[in-house]
Design a protein around this nucleic acid. Structure first.
Lengths: 171, 171
DNA sequence: GCACCCCGCTTGCAACAGCTAGCACGCTGG
DNA sequence: CCAGCGTGCTAGCTGTTGCAAGCGGGGTGC
């Protein structure tokens, strides 16, 4: 019989498998700092392996306009940014920050400490969120390690199945 | 009493559904809130005993346009809102919230800020955790409200203070 | 009376956001 | 070969944003 913490971790990982794959790609894109919201949107879209038309459909904006936004030809309103964020399944605030509408919060408060001290949560909910957070952080760190191993052309022993590489973005 | 298996599955599955629900609620909130940013600006300006022309000068926007914004005839961009906020010496986020650009998030700002700034997470994982956090915080608040209602048999206010109404009485 | 300053608002316009219709290109199956 | 489908992009259009020029009203000093 599995212990509760192991069980929770396995459950969460299984449910998020498909999302985690795209998330790993997204984290790769994040490593390269984007200087504009358009680039950022394109990177996120490519990481999620979504075509421009599909994202425009998901976001509810026209595909030519989305193309122009990605190429920096147009400056989208906050409303459009929110729609694009919804299509990308990321927070609108992320795009606001990239667009310079919202200031990026400085001060790296410890996420774990904040979650633990947050009185807006019950203890059980805290445990779930912390477990999920640690799982995500671990995956993110593992992905970065794989990226570095690939960069140095060393045969890195991978414990997971091969994930789609970014070359598939041009499908 | 749910077993841990069912509990986690239900919670994680609910996240996907809550995204569309939250989006629908957000659009409703936007409709309601966005009509009052002008009123809010005028109230703030009157409270500061500043003329429309003086505020337009401080903010760096034309006074006719500011007048139109206050009367709800025009919908200002986030950039203009930020300028007006600077003129009023209030945070831009305050006006963004009034305009419906930014969601008022429940829970403590430090937890939200920590999650958003945490570089150990990808953007997608951040969004997932934030949505789950929101859901939990809302449930916790509802639970506390129920417990207090049962204890005192009176409609007790929750830990969140009532939103201050625009200072219409000082106009 | 006048000129001058303040006030908030009207009007018309230029620039831009966001859209539709359609293009060119690549790929696939018959 | 073709037709069909996918891809991202061009061009032109409409509606909106934000502005400048100016209006009418009130108050003050000469």
């Amino acid at each position: 019989m599995q212990r509760p913490t192991e069980f929770v971790r396995d459950q969460v990982t299984a449910v998020r498998e498909s999302v985690a794959t795209a998330a790993a790609e997204a984290s790769t894109a994040n490593t390269t700092v984007s200087s504009s919201v358009g680039e950022f949107i394109r990177n996120q879209r490519n990481a999620a392996q979504v075509s421009l038309r599909e994202l425009s459909r998901l976001a509810g904006v026209s595909n030519p306009y989305l193309s122009q936004v990605e190429r920096g030809l147009r400056k989208p309103s906050a409303e459009i940014l929110a729609q694009i964020a919804r299509g990308l399944k990321i927070s609108a605030e992320t795009l606001y920050e990239q667009a310079g509408i919202l200031d990026r919060r400085s001060g790296t408060a410890s996420t774990v400490a904040a979650l633990r001290a947050d009185e807006a949560l019950s203890e059980r909910h805290k445990a779930v969120l912390l477990e999920l957070y640690e799982t995500y952080a671990r995956e993110h760190a593992a992905q970065l390690a794989r990226e570095q191993a690939a960069a140095s052309t060393a045969p890195a022993p991978t414990t997971t199945a091969p994930t789609p590489t970014p070359q598939e973005e041009t499908a």
